Amino acid sequence: MAIQTPDRVVPDTVAILADTTAPRRPRRRRSISWGAYLGLAPLAIMLGVFCYYPAASGIFHSFWNWNPGGESTFTGLENYATMMSDQLWWESFKNLGIIFLFGVVSWVIPLAAAELLISLRSERAQFVYRTLLIVPMAFPGVVTALIWSFLYQPNDGVINTFLKSIGLDALAQNWLGDPHLALISLLFIGFPFIAGLPFLMFYSTLQNVPKEIFEACSLDGVNRMQRLFLIDLPLMGRQVQLLLVLVIIETLQYGFVAYILTSGGPDNATTVPVLHMLSEAFNGGNWGYAAALSTTLFVLTVVFSTIVAVAKRRDSTTNVKGM
C-alpha cells in the first residue's frame, strides 16, 4: 500500500508512479516461425478430413436423394419438406425436452455434493472423497449402460429382486419394456449423477473462493442455505451458463444409451432425433433424408448455443456497466 508523508513519498510509490507515467515503447510483434505452422498442418488436415468434410458432405447431400456409391439425384428442399410432415420426428423432440429438463434438475445432486465436500475441514478427507466420487468417470459408457440393463431386468434384475425380497412385489416393473417407464428409466442411468462435469465445475468454483469468506459468513451467523444463494450460486454464474451450452449439445446428440438398451422402443417411447436419423439411414436407406435430419440438428445446436452465448455476453456487459 502506498504511504505518503508531508515531506516525502515512499520510494516504492515513486517507482510505481514513474513506471506508470513514463512513455512506453511499442512492443515489437514476434514473428512466428514457419515450423509452428508446419507442426499444426497435420492436425489441421486431420480435422478437415474427419470433422469438417463429413459435416460439409452431410449438408451438401441433404439436398439430394443420396445413394452412396450409386447415382444420386438433386431434390432441392424435398427432404426438408418431408421432415416438416414427419410426425415421429417432431414427437421425438418431446422426449428431448424431458431429457433436457431432467439433465438441468439433476445438477442439484452434484451441487449438494460439492457443497458438502468443500465443508470438510480436512484436506486429506476432501481428497479421498473427491477421488471416490469422480473415479466412476473413468468407466466406459457402454459398461455403465450394460450394468444398468442388468439392474433393470424384469425377471431376475437387481431392482425387482430387491423389491420382491422386501415384500414390495407390486412395485416390480418391466422398467425398459413399459412405454410409461422406459424413458425415465434411461434417464436414471448413472444415478446419483455426481461423477460428471457439473460436480467438477461446482467444486472447482468453491475451491477458488477464499476461506476467509466462509469464515466471515460463519462469524456473521450466515447459515449454509443463505451462503448458497447469496455467495456460492452468484459465483457459479459463468459455470452454469457453460453447463447450459454443454447440456444443450449433449441433449441434441442424445441417443447412445437409448440405442443400446431400447433402440427407441417400446412403442417409440424412447425415440430421439438421433435414433430416428440413424433408422432412416441404416434401416430405411434414406440417406439424403437422414442427412437433412442431421443438418437440422446441427443448425439447432448452433442456434441454441449462440443464444446462450449472447445472453452471457449481455449479462457480462451489464455487470461491467453497473460497476
Rank of each mutant, 00 (worst) to 15 (best):
I3T: 12
Q4A: 05
Q4R: 13
P6V: 14
A15C: 00
A15S: 09
D19H: 10
T21A: 06
A22Q: 07
P23K: 01
I32V: 15
S33F: 06
S33T: 11
P42I: 13
I45Q: 06
M46N: 00
G48K: 09
G48R: 06
F50V: 14
C51Q: 05
S57V: 08
G58L: 15
G58C: 14
F63E: 08
W64D: 02
N65W: 01
W66N: 08
W66E: 14
G69T: 03
S72F: 09
G76S: 07
L77K: 02
A81E: 12
T82H: 12
M83Q: 11
S85N: 09
W90Y: 02
E91C: 04
E91G: 10
K94F: 03
N95D: 07
G97D: 04
G97C: 08
I98V: 13
F100W: 12
G103L: 03
G103K: 15
V104N: 05
I109F: 14
P110F: 10
A114I: 04
L116V: 08
L116G: 03
S119R: 15
E123M: 04
A125Q: 03
R130Q: 03
T131N: 05
I134H: 04
M137Q: 11
V142P: 06
L151W: 08
Q153L: 08
N160Y: 12
T161H: 08
T161G: 12
F162I: 14
K164R: 15
L168R: 04
L171F: 13
W175Q: 09
W175S: 09
D178Q: 04
D178V: 10
A182M: 13
L183H: 06
I189N: 11
P192S: 10
F193W: 14
G196W: 07
G196N: 14
G196A: 15
L197M: 11
P198K: 14
F199A: 09
F202N: 11
F202P: 08
Y203L: 12
T205Q: 11
L206Y: 07
V209T: 11
P210E: 11
E212L: 10
F214L: 02
A216T: 12
V222Y: 01
N223T: 04
R227A: 06
L235N: 05
M236F: 07
Q239V: 15
V240F: 14
L243A: 10
V247M: 02
V247N: 13
V247S: 13
E250S: 13
T251Y: 05
F256K: 02
Y259N: 14
I260K: 03
T262P: 09
S263G: 08
N268I: 00
A269L: 11
A269V: 06
P273R: 01
L275H: 03
L278D: 05
F282L: 14
N283V: 11
G285T: 13
W287I: 12
G288I: 08
G288W: 13
S294H: 08
S294N: 13
T295I: 11
T296Y: 15
F298G: 11
F298A: 14
V299R: 05
L300R: 06
F304G: 05
R313T: 12
R314Q: 12
T318V: 01
K321F: 09
G322W: 09
M323V: 00
